[in-house]
């Protein structure tokens, strides 16, 4: 792969992306249009995240990739291999060792620290998209802070179901200004968005948008005073490490309806097991 530049993208493109990132960090939650490039992986498979990672990675970085919280899922493996090949950066599965973490659909359980960068892959960056399909109109709604419609959606949920029926990609308001889609993370992860010491960058390749949360930025999940936001997860401890504070995957273990719940964050689970914690299904 010597024909390609460090981290695949040419320097010109990286500069363009970095400019978009800086603008995004300066206006937290605002979607900055950028000229997304065609990447050697399909749109929708993390091209936005990959371009952001390519623009921020340096040879000294230690890179971690997770998909659904796990380092071992196929697309995480594929993206990690891509940067091993094109950037030759060191990789890791340990959250605390990584300086750049690219993620799809989860925020790691272990608290992040200053200096770390979390890069999200974003399929649909526009939180108003399913209420208003027109880009020209949604941009105007953001510009004028016309977010009444967003609450109408939540109102309808409560009227129909008794509570807000959005379980992932739960919309948030950033620093009291922009309504933002946190990418399809479960709402369980929403509280971790706020006041994080790490830099959080969001890349949507196909939709050509970048947005960001600078460190220690206030992020509030939309709700009503009398129906406050509640992060939720399966009401079980992890079957392997016994954790009660982590987001769980449900695993079907046999044909007879047998199931168990395990941490979706595999690094978190492995670390706890190595420290001697055991769940009821552990060997």
């Amino acid at each position: 792969m010597t024909d390609y530049n460090f981290a695949y993208l040419d320097e010109q493109t990286k500069r363009m992306i970095r400019r978009a990132l800086l603008k995004a960090l300066a206006i937290p939650g605002y979607q900055v249009p950028f000229a997304s490039r065609e990447m050697p992986m399909p749109y929708g498979w993390g091209t936005g995240g990959v371009q952001v990672s390519a623009a921020v990675l340096t040879p000294e970085d230690r890179f971690k990739v997770i998909d659904q919280g796990a380092d071992g899922t196929t697309n995480a493996v594929s993206i990690r291999a891509f940067f091993e090949r094109t950037a030759g950066v060191a990789t890791t599965t340990a959250t605390h060792e990584a300086s750049v973490i690219q993620t799809r659909h989860r925020i790691p359980e272990a608290p992040l620290r200053e200096g770390q960068i979390l890069v999200y892959q974003v399929p649909i960056p526009e939180p108003l998209r399913f209420l208003e399909p027109r880009e020209s109109e949604t941009r105007k709604m953001h510009e004028l802070e016309e977010y009444g419609l967003m609450h109408v959606k939540l109102y309808e949920d409560i009227a129909r179901h008794g509570h807000i029926a959005t379980s992932y990609a739960y919309p948030v308001k950033v620093e009291g200004r922009y309504v933002m889609d946190p990418s399809p993370i479960p709402k369980f992860d929403n509280p971790k968005l706020s006041n994080s010491p790490a830099i959080q960058l969001f890349g949507a390749g196909r939709e050509q948008r970048i947005y960001a949360l600078p460190p220690y930025c206030e992020v509030v999940s939309l709700d009503f005073e009398d129906h406050p936001f509640e992060p939720s997860k399966a009401d079980h401890p992890c079957g392997l490490c016994g954790a009660t504070d982590s987001y769980l995957d449900e695993v079907i273990v046999d044909d007879a309806g047998g199931r168990m719940f395990v941490c979706s964050d595999t690094d978190y689970c492995d670390t706890r097991q190595a420290a001697g914690y055991r769940g009821k299904d552990a060997a």
Partner: peptide, 27 residues
């Protein structure tokens, strides 16, 4: 009107647009 939104949501929209955030009051 928003034809896909309940009657209550239709009436409540303007309230929410100007900052009402208490479901019970809006309803």
């Amino acid at each position: 009107l928003r034809m896909g939104v309940s009657a209550g949501g239709n009436v409540g929209e303007r309230l929410m647009a100007v900052g009402a955030r208490h479901y019970g009051d809006i309803r």
